[in-house]
């Protein structure tokens, strides 16, 4: 069999490998945001982070929360129900909701629950107790719903200072905020995010 030319020509081989690769590389990285503008801009108002929330985001990153928590309600009933709130289903995450996220934490693994819509679900004092010891959150939060709390695999973040926990919590309380979805008793939308 006659051998193809690239087998004795380094330039042809290198260029070939590069060009063939670059077709897919360009079409899957550069083209998508050009086609779908919600990759980088939003048609709706999106929350702008305060300095404290940004600092919280940094703490979230530095402690690898993303390796146990995703931040995306997938387009699946079970995600919407499981990560909903008091029988209200969580809305599916949309790409425009993330445009202000300088660092994304969509994640791939749910050792812990999804956090995309965790903002407003708990009081900030709940988060404080939870970071200090996720398995034993003290008397105040020992309700019957927490029977399994001691099975949590979340690390203790006792080493975070009070200021850091405050910032981190402020960040968590923003999650999901770009859509009003939690409804009060009389069906009105709640916007009671604690800071």
């Amino acid at each position: 069999m006659k051998k193809p030319a690239f087998e004795k020509n380094l330039f042809l081989l290198g260029m070939g490998a590069f060009l063939v690769f670059s077709v897919g590389a360009i079409l899957t990285t550069i083209i998508p945001p050009l086609v779908d503008h919600t990759f980088y801009q939003s048609p709706y108002p999106v929350h702008t982070y305060t300095a404290s929330e940004l600092n919280g985001m940094k703490i979230y990153q530095a402690n690898g929360c993303v390796y146990c928590h995703t931040q995306q309600i997938r387009n699946l009933k079970e995600d919407q129900v499981r990560f909903g709130w008091r029988l209200v289903e969580a809305p599916v995450s949309q790409s425009w909701e993330y445009v202000n996220d300088r660092w994304h934490f969509l994640g791939t693994k749910r050792t812990g629950p999804d956090l995309a819509r965790v903002g407003g679900k708990y009081a900030s004092s709940w988060h404080w107790a939870h970071f200090k010891d996720p398995r034993n959150m003290g008397e105040k939060y020992q309700t019957q719903n927490n029977r399994f709390q001691e099975a949590s695999l979340m690390p203790n973040f006792y080493f975070l200072s009070d200021g850091q926990i405050k910032d981190l919590t402020a960040y968590l309380q923003t999650l999901g905020r770009n859509m009003n979805w939690r409804k009060g008793q009389s069906g009105e939308y709640l916007n009671d995010y604690e800071n």
Partner: peptide
Amino acid sequence: SFVYVWTGAHHMIHGPISYWL
């Protein structure tokens, strides 16, 4: 060398990224 590079978005199936991608 042609096909491998196209598949990144399969890490976000059902996720908040364009359906066609």
